[in-house]
């Protein structure tokens, strides 16, 4: 039981990280980014393809991360250049289309669920410590620490650095931000690059646990969007908490026999209830502006 919850924490940290990336993309460049997990999976598969071919992991890792970052930047450039003047709905729709295309290309390149499971490196499988039957694997701590680090780090950058202030200004009032001389397209591209790199790392972290096929990893975007929703597409700490809670619930429902077969549904039920509870006093239109 406790072990399942701890295993859930590993996923929880990952869910939180993915949710954070969705929230940040939404806040900073105003795109609900459906492509994110697929982009990270692309980067991750570039890396395993290299290690499969005998390249050392220390070389393959930066190449994979750079590939994820570059792909993300390319998609960002498409959205900035051709859809910069369009509303959020259009951009979200474009990102869904890109997601579908990426999944098709990814499946073609890297194989499907049955044929394409790669063995990802598992650097964090060793237990940190075990007390009785309770085992805490390194991966749980690493994903937790990564999630907390990113949440705090992003908060610090946004509030304490000139670039962060400019990003906030851009997020609040894009046109006025440009009026005061903020180079919006370049800043947006930086955001896309960073999101692509971080997502690739996160996908690499979770890939060994999920079996390591492209389709499963790309579809993590569903969970990421759910977590982002828990943070109302705005609050970083709430998103972090949401991801962790979701992970633990998933672990818990795997352990309790009565609900085991509904494992996939339980977290989403909880999300619906939480969202309903939180928005009980809100008027949807006004409360959910960016």
């Amino acid at each position: 039981m406790v072990n399942s919850v701890i295993a859930g924490l590993t996923s929880g940290g990952v869910y939180a990280l993915l949710g954070l990336c969705v929230v940040l993309t939404y806040r900073l460049v105003a795109v609900v980014n459906f492509t994110m997990a697929a982009v990270g999976a692309m980067g991750a598969f570039v890396m395993v393809s290299l290690t499969d071919a005998g390249v050392s992991a220390w070389l393959a890792l930066p190449v994979g991360v750079a590939a994820g970052a570059a792909l993300s930047a390319a998609l960002g450039a498409v959205l900035v250049r051709w859809f910069g003047g369009h509303g959020q709905n259009t951009k979200a729709a474009v990102s869904v289309a890109l997601y579908v295309a990426l999944m098709a290309v990814g499946l073609r390149l890297f194989g499907s669920t049955t044929t394409g499971a790669h063995s990802f490196p598992r650097p964090f499988d060793a237990p940190v410590f075990s007390a009785g039957s309770v085992v805490v694997p390194q991966s749980a701590l690493v994903s937790l620490a990564f999630a907390v680090l990113i949440t705090a780090g992003v908060g610090l950058v946004l509030h304490r650095t000139r670039v962060g202030l400019r990003l906030q200004a851009l997020s609040e009032q894009p046109s006025t931000a440009q009026v005061v001389g903020i180079a919006a397209p370049r800043l947006a591209l930086v955001v896309w690059v960073v999101i692509g790199a971080v997502t690739t790392l996160v996908i690499l972290l979770v890939a060994p646990r999920l079996g390591g096929d492209f389709s499963t990893l790309g579809k993590l975007i569903n969970t990421a969007l759910a977590v982002a929703m828990l943070g109302a597409f705005r609050s970083l700490p709430l998103t972090l908490a949401g991801g962790l809670v979701l992970g633990c619930l998933e672990g818990l429902s795997a352990a309790v026999e009565a609900v085991q077969q509904y494992q996939g549904v339980v977290p989403f039920l909880v999300i619906v209830v939480l969202l309903w509870w939180r928005s009980r006093h809100e008027v949807w239109d006004t409360a959910h502006s960016r």
């Binding site: 200004a169 609040e172 009032q173 006025t176 009026v179 005061v180 001389g181 180079a183 919006a184």
Partner: peptide, 21 residues
């Protein structure tokens, strides 16, 4: 933004402060 960097400032009609900053 390039015009701004070239030395143009614009006080817009709508009192456009960045409210959350």
């Amino acid at each position: 933004y390039r015009r701004a960097q070239a030395g143009l400032a614009y006080v817009e009609q709508a009192r456009t402060v960045f409210r959350t900053l």
